[in-house]
Simulated assay, not measured.
Amino acid sequence: MTLVQLEYIVAVDTYISFVAAAEKCFVTQPTLSMQVQKLEDMLGVKIFDRSKQPVNPTEIGVHIIAQARTILQEAGKVKELISAQKLEVSGEFKIGVIPTVAPYLLPKVIANMLSKYPDLKLIIWEYTTEDILIHLKTGVLDCGILATPLVDANVTEHVLYYENFVAYLNRGSKLYKKKIIDPVDLNDENVWVLNEGHCMRNQVLNICRSTKNNRLQGLEYNTGSVETLVRMVDLNGGATLLPELGAEELTGKQKNRLRSFKAPEPVREISLITHKNFIKHRMLELFKTEILETIPKHMKNKKKKDVVGV
Rank of each mutant, 00 (worst) to 15 (best):
L250D: 10
N301D: 10
W125A: 11
K77N: 08
E285D: 13
H281Q: 04
M34I: 02
K262F: 14
N256F: 07
I124K: 01
E227S: 05
I270A: 04
M113S: 05
K38L: 14
Y15T: 12
E248Q: 14
T251I: 05
N187R: 13
L105C: 03
I64T: 09
I124L: 09
S271C: 14
H275T: 07
S17G: 14
L106Q: 07
V267P: 03
L284M: 15
V101L: 09
N202K: 14
S260T: 10
M283G: 00
N277S: 14
I71N: 02
L106K: 03
M113E: 08
Q29P: 12
Q203D: 09
R259Y: 10
E293P: 01
N202I: 07
Y168D: 09
A111P: 04
T240F: 04
Y161C: 04
G246M: 06
V191F: 09
L43H: 09
G172I: 04
L235N: 13
H63R: 15
K255V: 09
E80G: 01
K116R: 15
V89R: 00
E293T: 11
D119K: 12
Q29Y: 12
I95S: 01
N214W: 01
E269T: 06
E80M: 00
V308N: 11
L292S: 04
L186V: 10
I123K: 08
G91A: 03
D188I: 03
Y117I: 07
E163M: 07
P118A: 02
L175F: 12
S210N: 02
F278C: 01
N190F: 00
I145N: 04
H298D: 13
N112F: 00
A167G: 09
V310P: 02
K305M: 12
G91I: 02
L133Y: 02
E80Q: 06
K174I: 13
K137M: 09
V230F: 06
V184Q: 12
E80Y: 00
